[in-house]
Simulated scan of single mutants.
Amino acid sequence: MSENILTAKTIEMNQSFDSKEEAIQYTGALLRDNGYVNAEYIDQMLEREKVTSTFMGNYVAIPHGTEDAKKAVLETGIAVVTVPEGVDFGDGNIVKLLIGIAGKGDEHLEILSKIAIVCSEEENIDTILNAGSKEEIISIFNEVN
Score class of each variant (00 low, 15 high):
2 S>N: 15
2 S>M: 13
4 N>E: 10
5 I>N: 01
7 T>I: 05
7 T>P: 14
8 A>T: 12
8 A>C: 12
8 A>R: 12
9 K>Q: 12
10 T>V: 12
13 M>H: 09
14 N>I: 08
14 N>E: 13
16 S>K: 15
18 D>W: 05
18 D>G: 11
20 K>V: 00
20 K>A: 14
21 E>D: 13
22 E>I: 04
23 A>I: 05
23 A>Y: 06
25 Q>P: 12
27 T>E: 09
28 G>A: 11
32 R>E: 12
32 R>Q: 14
34 N>F: 04
35 G>C: 15
35 G>D: 15
36 Y>A: 05
36 Y>M: 11
37 V>D: 03
40 E>W: 00
40 E>V: 04
43 D>S: 13
44 Q>R: 10
44 Q>P: 02
45 M>Q: 01
47 E>R: 11
47 E>A: 15
49 E>M: 08
50 K>D: 14
50 K>L: 15
52 T>N: 10
52 T>S: 14
52 T>P: 02
54 T>M: 10
55 F>P: 00
55 F>N: 06
55 F>E: 00
55 F>M: 08
56 M>E: 10
57 G>V: 07
57 G>D: 07
57 G>R: 11
60 V>F: 01
60 V>I: 07
60 V>A: 01
62 I>C: 06
63 P>C: 00
66 T>F: 09
67 E>Q: 09
68 D>C: 03
69 A>M: 05
69 A>D: 02
69 A>N: 08
70 K>G: 00
72 A>I: 01
72 A>S: 11
78 I>P: 00
80 V>M: 06
81 V>C: 03
82 T>P: 09
83 V>K: 03
84 P>C: 06
87 V>T: 06
89 F>I: 03
92 G>P: 13
94 I>R: 09
94 I>H: 06
96 K>E: 10
97 L>P: 01
97 L>D: 01
98 L>D: 00
99 I>A: 07
100 G>A: 02
102 A>M: 10
102 A>V: 03
102 A>T: 03
104 K>E: 11
105 G>A: 07
106 D>P: 02
106 D>Q: 09
107 E>S: 13
108 H>W: 08
109 L>W: 06
111 I>N: 02
113 S>N: 13
118 V>W: 03
120 S>L: 13
121 E>S: 10
123 E>H: 13
125 I>M: 05
126 D>K: 15
127 T>A: 11
127 T>W: 03
130 N>Q: 10
131 A>G: 15
131 A>P: 10
132 G>S: 14
132 G>N: 14
134 K>P: 00
135 E>I: 06
135 E>N: 12
136 E>H: 14
136 E>F: 02
138 I>C: 11
139 S>Q: 09
139 S>L: 10
142 N>D: 07
142 N>S: 15
143 E>W: 07
143 E>Y: 06
144 V>K: 15
